[in-house]
Every structure is written in C-alpha cells, then in structure tokens.
Design a protein around this nucleic acid. Sequence first.
DNA 1: CGTGAATTTGACGCCAGTCAATCTACGTGG
DNA 2: CCACGTAGATTGACTGGCGTCAAATTCACG
Lengths: 253, 253
Amino acid sequence: MAWRGALAEFLIRKLEHFTSLSNDDKHALDQASRQRTRRIRSRDDIVHEGDLPQGVNLILDGWACRYKTLEDGRRQIIAYLLPGDLCDQNVSVLREMDHSIGTVTAVTLAEIPTETMRQLTSGHARLSQALCWESLVAAAIQREWTVNIGQRTAFERLGHLLCELYVRLRAVGLTQGNTCELPLTQAEIADTIGLSVVHVNRTLQELRSVGLISLRGRELTIHRLEALQRAVQFNPNYLHLGREGRHLDSNEA
Amino acid sequence: MAWRGALAEFLIRKLEHFTSLSNDDKHALDQASRQRTRRIRSRDDIVHEGDLPQGVNLILDGWACRYKTLEDGRRQIIAYLLPGDLCDQNVSVLREMDHSIGTVTAVTLAEIPTETMRQLTSGHARLSQALCWESLVAAAIQREWTVNIGQRTAFERLGHLLCELYVRLRAVGLTQGNTCELPLTQAEIADTIGLSVVHVNRTLQELRSVGLISLRGRELTIHRLEALQRAVQFNPNYLHLGREGRHLDSNEA
DNA sequence: CGTGAATTTGACGCCAGTCAATCTACGTGG
DNA sequence: CCACGTAGATTGACTGGCGTCAAATTCACG
C-alpha cells in the first residue's frame, strides 16, 4: 500500500470506504496536505466563534472538537474531529464562524487553501464526489447526535457515542483489535451527551459492570461490539461506510 | 419585485439574505422549480429511511420535517423544512437515506433533477455560492439543535425553537408583524426538543403566563421577541442572515 | 352533534443533577 | 526520592426537573 505514511493517509483511507481513488487522486490529496501544516498543543483553540473562516483544515493527527459555549458557561461539544476529518470544506462563503474548534489532544493539521480545494474538486471528478460524501457523512453524524441526545437514556447515549467513535477510528485504521484510544475526560464526555460529570461516571461504571467495555487511562476496549450496538440501538448505517460509491469504481488503481 | 409569485419565490427571498441574485439567476431557479412539482398531503411521508435518494426537493409551500424512529417507537424530529428550504442538495452520492422526511402540513414541492442542479451551479457562479450558503446554514441549524437539546432547560429549549422558526419564517416573508403560523402539535414539539408531551404543555403555559408568547390554534405570536431571545439565549448568528455575501453584490439586478 | 385527536390537569415516581468530600494519578520542585 | 499540588475520577446524600399514567376537557371536522 503505497500511501501508508502519506500525510493524507487517514483521509485517503476514509474516502476509500466510499469509492476507490486513483493514484493521481491520492497524490493530489497528499500534495494538498503538504502545503502548510500546523501543530497545536492539547486543549487549545484552533478557531474561535466570530472568526473569519479561513481555508479548509484537515486533521492529520490527534483529536479536536467543535463546541459552543453559552453565556453562563454551559458548553456543548458539537462534533469530534478525528484524523482524516476535514473541517468545513466550504465555510469560506460564510463571514463568521458560529462556533469554536478546539483540540482535545495535541493536533497536527494541514491547512488547505480554498484555491487548492477548488483545483482538487474541479480536476478530479471521483475525488470531488468522495469529498462530497465526506461532508454528507459529517452532516449525518450531526443528525444522529440530535437523535442520541434527544431520545436516548444516559446508558444508551454513552454507549452510542463510544460505538461511533470506535467505528470511525476503525475506518481510518486507528484501532487495535477491539480497543482504541479515548483521550476524553469524563467532563468532556458529559458536555458531549448532555449529562453531568457525575452521571457520566456512574454510567461508565454501569457499562463496565455489565462487561461491555473497559476503560482505563486513555484506552477503551469494547468487549462485545455487537452486544453493545444492540444494547444502545447503534445502527452504523448513518456513517455510510459501505462503499456506497462502488458503482463508480474502476480498476485503474 | 418581479419575482413575487414565482414558484421559487421563497427560496429566492431566502438566498437574497446572503447575496443579491441577478434576474438571470432568479429565472434559472424558477425554471428549475417548474420541471416537476408534487403535492403531498398532511402527515404523509415524502422519503423513507432506506430509500435510494432521488433528486433535490425544494419546499414550495407547507411544512415538512426530517425524522428518525428508533426500534421501540421513540421518534426524534431532526429538522424542519420550511418554504424555500432545499432538501439534500447532494444526497445523490449516497446510496441510501439514513432518515425519513415527512410532511407536517400539506406540502407542495419541486423535484429538481440532479442534472438540472448541476447546470444551475455550473452556469451561475453567484447562485452556486448562494446554494452553498444555504446548505451551510442548514448544517449550522443542526449544530444549534444539538446545543439546544444538550444544554438548555425545557423553558429555554422551547423558547429557542420558537425563536428560530419565527426568524426563519420571517426571512422568507411568512410572518405578519410578530405572528406566524405554527402548525405543530405539542407531540411533534415534544419529539423535536426531547421532552414529553405533558412537559411541553406545561412549558408552553409558562411561556404564555410570563407574557412572552400567545399560541392559539395554529397561530403563534411572540409579544416581545427581544425579551424572549434574551430569556432563552437565542443568538441568531447561526442563521447567517446578515448578507454575509454582500461583498459579492453587483448592481446588475 | 358525534367522534377521535389534541390539549390540559393532577398525582406520583424516577432519572439525572447538585453539592461536597474523598481518592487517585501524575507531574513538579525541593 | 519524596512532598506536594492539581486535574481527574469516584462516592454518598440529597434534590428537583421532567417523565409516566390516567383522567378530564376542549377542539376539529365530517
């Protein structure tokens, strides 16, 4: 696999869950990722609400999140940005960010200029569709979060979140067997699923005590993924990882 | 105003909150809306989860909603689609709908074929940006709903929803003074903001008793919009209605 | 008017929040 | 190498917002 080690490695892996890309596509993506990279330390802000949107950010390494803060300090984490995730392919048409983006761990990201994005999509039809797919999936995840927070119990919410993160990490090759990293504090989890820290703690213990997961340090293990999925009604269809663009595939690669 | 009465009237009005469109742009939009229109009766489904996505739907008249149902019957309304709203500009790259779309009232919609959309965006740069803006705003609304359900109290959630719907309707000219239609049952409101019907009922009474709103039949009046906005921390910036594309404006219209 | 849907009300219970203390892990400086 | 400081995790006691159940009332409409 020639693209292991490419800066855009995780993005390429993710997009290949939709369709296969040509070497030319992959090369173009990797080149775009090399123009300007930045390293941001843990728990720091990348973008502030109110900022003028800049070009597209691609997470190369580490975890970040979108979040919004209310006047009285309540905070909601709106999305997690994992390696291979693109932030805001088209935000540049907006004048002002309506939320912030901050890091969870130290993050390396590629800043892809708007113009480079334009070239990428206009010159590579397949790639353009794959990028479109990636932004549709991001929207689908946001919708699923609405369902998760709106309808599910604490137990289901938390289990659902863990399932999603595990499956998304697996899609980019960041799991080892049934374990993956989970660099979130319980306070961050709480702000993600609309619960208090105390209740997150108790619910985690419940998930552990029924033998579904282990969580020690920053390492999550899901012992029985199928069982967990059933218990929390996690249906991965919204992640659209089933090579839905397979009718577009060619053998050129 | 030449475009009053155009089928795409509401969409045009909405897009003009972003930038001004040329007569050519408006004409193209209106033509696209005339190719195929459909009428769907109240409380009926337009699209089912699992369906193959079809072309783009434009709501010409009436209210619809996106929703998702869990196995045990719990339902979450994920978004409201109001006149002028486009559903899924690019879904055709997905193989399967991950949620359903149903009507709230009787709805008239225009089905715009994928190919027509392509022509619209490739031949009209300004329009293309405006449509991009509209889908970014839809995503921003979805994020705000996550915040709303995740962090706010029942009182705030409900007030916030009412503010949003009022402001969105006003943006397409569907308000009269400080009143607008609200064709939702309390059960639908409950499934929207993650509360029980009973509690929605009590919270509505609370909003009425403090003199912020009236709601009789299908008619909502917000007596003191500013006060309501403050009381529920509604900040309309996420709707991006401030002509953020104004630097693109020309005088050609 | 009759009938079912929608709204409203009351009583009661529980899930999850709050407050506050304790424990643990870990990095830092003496 | 250990004392100490701090962030994060955990626990217990208590509270309250919101859910559930069930009945009553009003509304919409044929």
